[in-house]
Design a protein around this nucleic acid. Sequence first.
DNA 1: CGCCAGGATACCC
DNA 2: GGGTATCATGGC
Length: 317
Amino acid sequence: MQNNSQKTACALTTTDKGLIVSGLRDFSAAQIFDCGQCFRFDGGEEGSGDRASLRGATKFSGVAFGRFAAFTDLPPDENGAVLLAEGVTEEEFKTVWADYFDLQTDYSAIKTEIISRFDEACRREDKTIRQAVERGCGIRILRADPFETLISFIISQNNNIPRIKKTIAALCAAYGEPIKVDRNISGDEAQTRYAFPTPEAIAAAGEEGIRALKTGFRAKYIVGAAEAVAEGSLDLAALAAADGEEARERLQQLRGVGPKVAGCVSLFGLHHLDAFPVDVWMKKVLALRYPDGLDIDALGRFRGVAQQYLFYNERWI
DNA sequence: CGCCAGGATACCC
DNA sequence: GGGTATCATGGC
């Protein structure tokens, strides 16, 4: 599902307000950062634009791969969606953020296949998936760091999103490397940002060090996973290259990693788009929207993307 | 006080 | 194999 024409379609322009990325397809920073796949970006802050066109736009700022940046959706033009990236150079966008946002993947083609597979599985025209795809039309599956995703979703178990974000922020502040913040990002100069801790840093912190961050019963799971990666017994890069089912089974061998966490790590951290994590929200979707049952395995190789459309649709309905 | 939160585990039958 | 109490913590 690679599309070279799309790769070259997005255009970069450096302005005094930041880097303008135009010609984006199937893209919404707000939807991407608000659909539960990423815990390190915070929004809500109004775009500080002095122009009417920026009013109401939400800026999301945060850290990925040890880099702090802010992203704001601008009104689309005739070439597609437009994104304002602050604290990002053209070179950095091309080498880091374009890959993070999975810009080389054609999500229009994915949507078409998803709808087709759902129709087949339901043996009718499925209105639910159409509504979900429409509502979350700008969602993309981030290519997030595998280790960060693993630890983040271990923390997510039996937890709520605000507290998950708070705990991860505390983990980064305590054991992550401080990041030099670009002074051009207005309003954010004063705060020190932190990279996600390395496996070695978390392993060295030990169970007591991690428990001190109010991680509760998850502390031993977090340290165990970090130790496995640090000592090399768990090779996440190999799992990214492996079959989706094989990756999920290997992840579930870790204590504190069950089907749901393994599914989220596979989908968001390893980019296995066939992973379909079922959480309380998805159980609600399945019971409410598909009362006659739904064969997950029949939903095709992009069912993980469909899962995000359905999750977003149900959470913000 | 109780219940819930992007669950997993140990233990029950 | 399928049910269920328990696990830390904080918000409501």
